[in-house]
Amino acid sequence: MKKTARAAILLATALVPVSAQAAQELNALIWCDHGDPALLEPFEKAHDVKVNIKEYQGTAEALTILEQSRPGDWDVMVIDAVDVGRAVDRGILAPLPADALPTADFFPELVMESHNSRDSVIYAVTDKFGYNTIAYDKTKVEPADMASLKALWSEKYAGRIGLYDYYLPMLGLVGIAQGVPTSALGAEKIETLRDPLMALKKNTKLVADVVGSQTALATGEVDILLGGGEFLTATLHAENPNLDWTIPTEGAALWAQSLAVLKDSGQPELALEFVKYVTSPEGQARLATSSCYWGMPANAKAGEHLSAEQKAVLRWDEQAEYLKRAQLYPIPSAEDDAAMQDLWTDMLQN
């Protein structure tokens, strides 16, 4: 009898954590910044939900994950704003009610209706943005030189440059340096970027992903990181305040990420609540300063939840000017996309 009682107590003890667990779960396909516990915990507590996350890196990867999943496996996804149309074409996104979204409080340029909507139906909402531009160590380069992209092709900085390994913004930047707007980067223009890209490679020491780029800049392996921006330097600011970034006179590439609810989500109301939370001023401030990488919040009211120092790192007061000079990522057709990737691979391989 004693044994039975002990077993019952043990069983009950074992079950306690289970009953204390969240009543429901939300599955999110995200970029790493959305996985920060500081962002997720307030939502999880408020809705008694556990947010399960899976990180991915490129839209192609995310679409493949969704294809290989069962309907309803995923509730929300983060997607490159320029790729929302691809997801809409596949019919995987659910319409979002306009009155539930705080887009009236957004920086006007970041509402991005033409990307997030189709036929007046909203399918996604921008939640963060930033720039692929020039990041540098201001003690090792002349900051005045960084006002022009041309400096990267000069002998002066040969062997001191790193490139961020993402072909879309990088080819956009090379195009911008050549006077080709990102919106005009079609089939006939892509090949004209080959020579300047190869010349840039000659000046380049390494090509790296986010972590590799951060490491290279932080350790002094490179002095300049083309394609970097606040998303690279902000998290390093406390340790190395010499790392800086700027938007050159020619312009820079604007990145923006959107949040969407999956059409087959089994809990669309909860998924919408998540979208509302992330785009709320508080959620936006937490997302902007995520431990994975920082970036500007789309909602301008997030400024009320950011400290003066955080806003200084994000260059909050200069956004109006920056947004005028920045150009959205190129949005290539499938064929142009393949041509751009081939060009980028050739650059890496030669």
Binding site: Q57, G58, A60, E61, L63, T64, Y167, A338, Q341, T345
Partner: peptide
């Protein structure tokens, strides 16, 4: 690395 490029970037399985 080339295999990963096909998977992560192009979705070219």
């Amino acid at each position: 690395q080339l295999i990963m490029l096909q998977l992560g970037r192009r979705g070219d399985y």
